[in-house]
Design a protein around this nucleic acid. Structure first.
Lengths: 256, 256
DNA sequence: CTTGACCTTGACGCAACGTCAAGCTTTAGA
DNA sequence: TCTAAAGCTTGACGTTGCGTCAAGGTCAAG
């Protein structure tokens, strides 16, 4: 009876290891109303409040959102099934992070490798300079000259960042081609879209939407990716290049 | 010359696979200003913009924050070193998720097990009922009666959620005791704090801050955790219980 | 001239509080 | 008893990266 089952907001916050602001927040959400509000407006909490608060904090530490916690406490859902749902989501997040880490490391490796490979004019040797005849043949010498000037005008860091982009695209293609996805799969089509967007950043190429020949350009390039061994090498051999060709072709026919 | 190096906001957004809103956002941040602003206020972008945008989107897909991307592009930091820092952060996030998943699964398992174990009056057999003599001896029969009434008044789901809390605490202790942390480590002290807070939710126990004997209560209980084999069993045997005792004792002496 | 497509700035919303700010209440000390 | 220090209240902005209206100007086509 003389037991003090009635704590101030700071007191219960300290007991549970949280802050008074958090308690006010939970009150405003209706998640944890005080057991009593004094005439002066002060919030007071009792043991029931403390228990509820402890459950809330426990679930929150497990990563549940406040609405999810509210649902659990309202018993719309059993705690176990909510947690099972939650653990599924946690696993998917972990998978996402794994893929991210892989991508970032590939990018780092590609940039590091780029310092060497690109110094030997591999990528620009193909994607740009070796591109020469095609470009001149189809869009004139002027277009090639413009493209070439653009490339030469880039400083070292500009070239380096460009190489990083190329490397990211390439590693993406290699990963996809060696996986189980089809060239028409959403992942491959997404990469194809980025590939086309990337091409459009090279001057002298007809990828502006106002240019009607974009589609033909892409289809021709895609075929060349397979027929030219220097390019195929960039995509892990002929089979890789074929995957890229099919994905780009599919994309061009659907979207361009 | 006739090449349309000048795209509208929607056009470049489509080229890069993003939205015009995103471009306006990047503009407002100063991350990607338009190459030209027409007299009517319309934003226009050129190939340089597109390349910068593609770099931004690439880095963003790798998980970097916009300020981080800005720093990279401003070359305050090389892309590689930024990515290295980033991958470290990604790994730590993955570790955190691993721990979370482990905790949630333990909680699920504990609740599932609780359905059985608790049916045999294991936890409440100790933490509550078997507690009887101690409580009566030290704080009177009235206190025990009150505590007992509180427990009996809980419905099935109330008891179940209570059990989940107990299970979470117990699995926490077992994990810590079997690890390399010392009883005085921050992790153990944090758990001790929660253990004490949890105890304070049981009626009839003197853990209100206005009650001066909290410290004595905790110290006595901690000792009992080791001396009473029924309790020790809950913490993975005597060594586990000793860890809990030491952590609680340390906590009580420092904080109470 | 009207419709419709595209553009602009402005501002709210989201998750879960942290962090002032302004002002009232209670408590402890001189 | 008077006051200063605590402690409490509501209100509102900041955080991250845009999505999503809202209200209104611009431009090309019919």
């Amino acid at each position: 009876m003389s037991n003090s089952d009635d704590w101030s907001i700071q007191h219960i916050a300290a007991l549970a290891g949280t802050t008074s602001r958090t308690l006010r927040h939970y009150d405003s959400l209706g998640l944890l109303p005080p057991s009593r509000i004094a005439s002066n407006g002060y919030r007071h909490y009792d043991r029931q409040s403390l228990m509820r608060l402890q459950r809330i904090l426990l679930l929150r530490e497990l990563g549940l959102s406040l609405p999810a916690i509210a649902a659990v406490l309202a018993q719309e859902e059993s705690a176990t099934s909510a947690l099972r749902t939650h653990v599924t989501w946690l696993r998917s997040e972990q998978d996402r992070l794994s893929r991210l880490i892989e991508s970032v490391e590939k990018t780092i490796a590609a940039e590091a490798a780029g310092e060497d490979i690109m110094a030997h004019d591999m990528f620009d040797g193909f994607d740009h300079t070796a591109h020469k005849e095609e470009v001149e043949q189809r869009w004139g010498k002027e277009a090639y000259a413009k493209s070439d000037a653009w490339w030469r005008s880039k400083d070292a860091s500009g070239k380096s960042t460009w190489k990083a982009q190329v490397a990211a695209l390439n590693s993406g293609w290699i990963a996809l081609a060696s996986g189980t996805d089809a060239p028409a799969s959403p992942a491959a089509q997404e990469l194809a879209r980025r590939h086309v967007a990337w091409l459009s950043s090279i001057p002298g190429t007809p990828t502006s939407a106002s240019d009607g020949d974009t589609r033909g350009y892409i289809l021709g390039l895609a075929a060349m990716y397979v027929s030219d061994e220097r390019f195929a090498a960039n995509y892990g051999g002929t089979s890789g290049a074929e995957f890229v060709r099919d994905a780009l072709t599919n994309f061009a026919e659907r979207e361009l």
